[in-house]
Amino acid sequence: MTALRLGTRRSALATTQSGWVADRLREAGHEVELVEITTEGDVSGELLTAIGGTGVFAAAIRHALLDGRIDVAVHSLKDLPTTPEPGLVVAAVPVREDSRDVLVARDKLTLGELPPGSVVGTGSPRRTAQLAALGLGLDIRPIRGNVDTRIGFVTSGKLDAVVLARAGLSRLDRLDEATEVIDPIQVLPAPGQGALAVECRSDRADVVAAVSALDDADTRACVLAERSLLASLEAGCTAPIGALAEVVEGDDGLELSLRAFVGSEDGSVELRRSLVGPYDEPEALGSRLAHILLEDGAADLQVTPSAGPAPDHAPHQPEQVS
């Protein structure tokens, strides 16, 4: 096999993630060439909801895969639609980074230390809904941009704080800028947050074989449960969604524990439910918990017209970024 052409967006986070996968493939003895792909989401200054949701980030790279311009693509897994793309396969889900959100605030403040009225920026209705539900009196504003841009809103004094994915800061070696790692009891992450998806064409058995060596079974099981929940909710719910699955030790061996959040963006309604199921049946677990949420009222929740940028997760303009 000739050198693997690995497609990546040009942002610092995307190239760092792609470079990490490329290094793992090189360690396994493969030659890898990084190929930059420009997406509509990278060049547009509009909010993501105005240009079709975060699917704009994945679409161009997937087209390059299907056209044969690249052999492998690396996505943030939460950026991928839950519906499979014909002709493509997620051949590996490598070991997951910490899935939690972090706060980057002025004066190194935590959520509990921010005074009422503090202006907090986020590109996620999921975060907006859960922060509002905490009842801290925060003024939550929609923002978008890369990590530098978002943290810059705080250092320049335009915002008091922003909320970001911890995984992104970790991969960029910028965790020291976080002032608090937010407990999932307060804010559950997006389904698949912190995980990568390594995708290739399903008819390229040689590439599938090379990439599949990077797969981590525990991570794949967890994200399958989370994304199954998301897919099931998309049929009957348009509210912000958070989910986190973890591998736990049960009486008869390994199990999956899945927690989920569905709520209104203004924080007036929040549903939090959890369920434990067999390790080897992650998709069934996600589907069961989704149906519990729908029966308990999630089907009646709708995204408000003021919803900010990306659907993280307000299903389903398909995806989301950090």
Rank of each mutant, 00 (worst) to 15 (best):
S268G: 11
T39Q: 11
V187Q: 02
G194K: 03
R150Y: 06
G68F: 03
R150M: 14
S232T: 13
P240I: 02
A12S: 10
F57T: 07
E283M: 13
P282F: 02
R126K: 15
G68W: 03
Q302Y: 10
A195E: 07
S228M: 05
A298D: 01
V211W: 00
L34E: 01
E199H: 07
A161E: 03
G29H: 08
A290R: 06
V269P: 13
D79E: 15
G242W: 11
S99G: 13
A58I: 08
R106A: 15
D280N: 11
I182N: 02
S322F: 11
G242Q: 09
E246S: 14
I70A: 04
I61R: 13
E180L: 04
D216F: 00
P116I: 04
V89M: 09
M1L: 13
G112Y: 03
V163A: 02
L109K: 12
V104A: 06
T155A: 11
V119H: 12
G45H: 07
D251S: 15
L229V: 01
P115W: 00
S268M: 05
Q130S: 08
Y279R: 11
T238L: 07
D280I: 02
A299I: 01
P81C: 04
G123V: 02
S118V: 11
A284H: 11
I182H: 01
G267S: 10
D215P: 07
D218F: 00
P115R: 00
Q17I: 12
R171G: 08
G277A: 05
T82A: 12
D23E: 15
Q130W: 05
T149V: 14
M1Q: 12
A243Y: 06
E234Q: 12
P116G: 02
G277R: 01
T219N: 07
A197N: 08
T155L: 12
L301K: 03
V162C: 06
A235E: 14
D296N: 10
